[in-house]
Measured scan of single mutants.
Amino acid sequence: DDVELRDGDWRVELKDADEEILRAVEEAIKNGASEQELRELAERLIR
């Protein structure tokens, strides 16, 4: 699993992620995405 989400800690570690993925995830976090939404976003972007 390349995506690590810690309970109560919104730092997201994406291994080997490019800047576009990181920006998309950071934007989702700023917009108040839930953990499930972040997982789905990350899975779509990593593929």
Rank of each mutant, 00 (worst) to 15 (best):
E43N: 08
E4A: 13
I21F: 05
I46T: 07
E13L: 15
I46Q: 07
E26C: 06
L45D: 01
A42H: 08
D18N: 02
R44H: 07
E19G: 09
R6S: 14
D7C: 01
D16M: 09
Q36G: 05
L41D: 00
A33H: 05
D1N: 11
D1F: 15
K15E: 12
D2G: 08
V25H: 01
R23T: 03
E4M: 11
V3F: 11
Q36A: 13
E26Q: 02
D18A: 05
N31Y: 03
L14T: 02
E43S: 06
E35S: 07
E35R: 04
E20H: 09
R6D: 14
A24Q: 15
E37G: 02
R11S: 08
A17I: 10
R44F: 13
E43R: 12
Q36R: 10
D2K: 10
G8R: 14
V3R: 10
L5E: 13
N31L: 10
I29T: 06
K15A: 10
Q36H: 08
R39W: 12
E35I: 06
I21H: 02
R44W: 10
R11I: 07
A42F: 15
L45I: 04
Q36I: 12
R47Y: 15
R47F: 15
R23V: 04
E43A: 10
A17W: 11
A28D: 00
E26V: 10
N31E: 06
L41R: 00
R23H: 06
L22R: 10
D18V: 11
D7F: 09
I21S: 03
E13W: 08
R39F: 06
E4W: 12
E40M: 02
L41S: 00
D9A: 10
Q36N: 08
E26T: 08
L22V: 13
D2Y: 10
V25F: 15
D7I: 08
K30I: 07
D16P: 03
R11P: 04
R23Y: 06
G32C: 01
E35W: 05
A33P: 00
E43D: 07
R23P: 00
V12Y: 08
D2Q: 12
N31H: 08
E40L: 09
Q36P: 00
W10T: 02
L45T: 01
L45R: 01
Q36E: 11
S34V: 01
D7R: 02
K30D: 04
A24W: 09
E19W: 13
E20Y: 14
A33S: 05
G32A: 01
D9S: 09
A17S: 03
V12R: 08
S34L: 03
R11F: 13
E35H: 09
I21P: 00
E20Q: 10
L45Y: 04
W10M: 03
V12E: 15
R39V: 05
V25A: 01
W10E: 02
I29P: 00
G32M: 02
E19V: 14
L22N: 06
R44Q: 10
L45E: 02
D16Q: 07
E13D: 09
E20P: 05
E20R: 13
L14C: 04
D1E: 14
E4L: 11
E4K: 08
E35P: 06
V25N: 00
I21A: 03
E37L: 03
D16F: 11
D7L: 13
S34Q: 03
D18Q: 09
K15L: 14
